[in-house]
Design a protein around this nucleic acid. Structure first.
Lengths: 126, 126
DNA sequence: TAGATATATAACCAGATGGTTAAACAATCG
DNA sequence: CGATTGTTTAACCATCTGGTTATATATCTA
């Protein structure tokens, strides 16, 4: 995958179930890398890599203090992902509204069942 | 990746920039597989696979009519992803609020600003 | 029926991903 | 200092991913 925007990194990071579980834990309280690792059946270096991926996406912030690394979530990155989703949904709902307007108008002319028509008709050549 | 929930499929699907761009197009209007393919520099079989991934995640619904396949977004699947994100954010904000409550209590002794509160305060235990 | 069109499938490939173990590094402890 | 602890890095490996081209399938059209 050719990542180019931060959104790519964020969605990529969230695509892995283990990383999403890490996020779910961090959302409750910040944890050290070791504490995270203790909760998963995979090796500590594997967790280390997941933490790095989350960090590079901006979702996780690491604060080193002595030899322990404290991990915290960044609300800002999280927002970037949910904003993208929300925007898609908003457009999508607008389109749904247009469809429903269209169906209402169409229904004024006939009682044809409109079930099979799933999208806005483009042109009618007959 | 060992996918187990539909959320896995959805986030996996959205992790690819090309697939997110397909979603962005579909959000405006439904398209046939060919119309989607025409907008990307990659081969038609590659698009076909992306469409399949989106379909399996539930994000995309395909309606075959003759030899063309019409693709539409499913709001429901989209919601699953944004709900997950929203829930994380909500918990995260709760945590922020706890922190902020703590700071406020600590500030009973000083004049600390409360800028760190980003969202609705949920409860105030003082 | 033959050809064109829309899409899917098969076979393949380079590179990425997610895991492993072993070793290195850094900080604290005795 | 040496030992221990928390973490990263290196090297490696099997599998997955996203692309390709070639071919198959299904439908429409002349």
């Amino acid at each position: 995958m050719v990542k180019q925007s931060q959104l790519d990194d964020i969605f990529f990071a969230l695509a892995d179930p283990t990383r999403r579980r890490i996020v779910e834990k961090l959302v409750r309280r910040s944890l050290t890398v070791g504490e995270i690792a203790a909760d998963f059946p995979i090796s500590q270096p594997a967790i280390s890599k997941h933490v790095k991926v989350l960090e590079e996406s901006g979702l996780l912030v690491r604060e080193v203090s002595g030899r322990v690394h404290h991990c915290t979530l960044s609300a800002k990155a999280m927002r970037a992902a949910s904003t993208w989703l929300d925007r898609q949904e908003r457009y999508w709902n607008d389109a749904l509204d247009s469809l429903s307007d269209y169906l209402e108008r169409a229904a004024a002319d006939s009682d044809r069942p409109t079930r099979t028509r799933r999208h806005l008709p483009r042109k009618k050549t007959s």
